[in-house]
Structure formats: structure tokens, C-alpha cells
């Protein structure tokens, strides 16, 4: 296992699997959030379920946080190792001639998403934990939509969110198809997969931005 975990392929596969897991999470997160635009009641109901279900709270949530931490830490470790593998830098390196900006700058888009996650946790996760496990306030199944809408009253916050979703899109534009390549999936369905990946990478972040903007405008 020691030799396996130190291998470049193992690290690449682990990075891909954590990325795929986070993409599945992102999809369900979007599916829940989009209901807030159409129905406060549905959003409250689903949020209350997610916020009180023990399986979600004590099993899935720690796995998710672990996945996020692993993905980010691994990303930084790999970047450091890769820089070391080059040694002396080229005087001229024309990366744009043979690869996309997104593929060469996953660290920049990833670090932006990490900074955004700090704000996002501060906005939603920290108050939620405080409400439930520190102040032990009484549970109100109808508070979620109001709390969400309240956050998007501030134009500055909405702008930061939209910019972050743009970087999330850039990250996914490379990350989606790259994850499948890393786990060994490259065959006649790859062009279709790349197309689906582009759709996912554009539509999901655009959908999140749409939610933030709609709530700001409704305010």
C-alpha cells in the first residue's frame, strides 16, 4: 500500500475520484438550491431534511468535508511535486500552443474556489453549526429560505459569488473530462463525455450564479 500510495498514477486516480465525488455533490447541491428560486416551501422542506437527517449530518457531511480537504491538499502537493520535477524553468514556455488555460491553471481556479469556500462556510455552514450545536436554538423548519435570501441582499457578496462560480466553471471545464481520463476511461464515448462535461461545467456554475442574482434582484 505504501508503494501504491506514493505512485504518480495512484495519486492521479485519488485526485480524480475525489473530484468525481465533489462533482456529484455539486449536482445535488444545485438541485436543492434551484428550488429556492421557485418555491420557498420546497426549499425549506428539503433543507430541513438535509439539516436534520442523521445520515446526512453525521456520515455524509464528514465524508464531504474530508473529500474537500483531501482534494485541495492533494492539489497543492501535486503542484509542488510537479514544480520540483521541472527543475530549472524555461526562459520561454509556450503552453498556450498545446494546452488549454484551464488545464494549466487548475491551481489558480482551485485556490479561488478554496477562498470562496471560506466565505461560503462563513455564510452558511458556520451559522448552521452555531444554531444547532452551539446555541442549541429550537429547530424552525421554515427558516432556511429566509436565511438564504438574506445573504444575497449584499451586492458585493453576490459579485464575489458570481466571480467564484466563473472560476468553478473554468476548473470543471478541465476537471470533468480529466477525471474520467485519470481513472482509465478513454474510448469511443470520450467525445460525448467531453461534451457532457462542457455542459456540466457551464450550466451548473451558471445555475448557481443565476440563483444568487435572482435572490439579489428579488430583494
Amino acid at each position: 500500500m505504501g508503494a501504491l500510495s506514493s505512485s504518480t498514477i495512484f495519486r492521479k486516480v485519488a485526485m480524480a475520484l475525489s473530484g468525481l465525488f465533489l462533482m456529484i455533490f455539486l449536482l445535488q447541491h444545485f438541485a436543492i438550491n434551484i428550488t429556492s428560486v421557485f418555491s420557498a416551501a420546497v426549499f425549506n422542506e428539503v433543507s430541513h431534511f438535509m439539516g436534520t437527517n442523521p445520515l446526512v449530518q453525521f456520515v455524509l457531511q464528514p465524508i464531504l468535508i474530508g473529500g474537500v480537504i483531501f482534494h485541495f491538499l492533494m492539489g497543492f502537493v501535486l503542484e509542488w511535486q510537479n514544480k520540483k520535477a521541472r527543475g530549472i524553468k524555461y526562459a520561454v514556455f509556450k503552453g498556450s500552443a498545446n494546452s488549454s488555460w484551464m488545464s494549466r491553471n487548475m491551481l489558480i481556479s482551485g485556490a479561488t474556489i478554496l477562498a470562496f469556500l471560506g466565505l461560503h462556510f462563513y455564510d452558511f455552514w458556520v451559522p448552521e453549526i452555531k444554531h444547532k450545536y452551539i446555541e442549541f436554538l429550537p429547530e424552525d423548519p421554515n427558516r432556511y429560505h429566509e436565511e438564504l435570501v438574506h445573504k444575497f441582499e449584499d451586492l458585493g457578496r453576490v459579485i464575489i459569488y458570481v466571480i467564484s462560480f466563473f472560476f468553478l466553471s473554468l476548473h470543471l471545464l478541465h476537471g470533468f473530462a480529466s477525471s474520467f481520463q485519470s481513472v482509465g476511461f478513454n474510448n469511443k464515448y470520450t467525445p460525448l463525455l467531453k461534451f457532457i462535461g462542457k455542459l456540466y461545467a457551464i450550466l451548473i456554475p451558471a445555475g448557481f450564479a443565476f440563483i444568487a442574482i435572482v435572490h439579489y434582484l428579488n430583494n
Partner: peptide, 9 residues
């Protein structure tokens, strides 16, 4: 050698 990140270069 470094880790492959599938840039395709």
C-alpha cells in the same frame, strides 16, 4: 518525473 494532470500538451 512529475504527475500527469491531463493537459494534453
Amino acid at each position: 518525473f512529475g504527475n500527469c494532470t491531463n493537459t494534453g500538451a
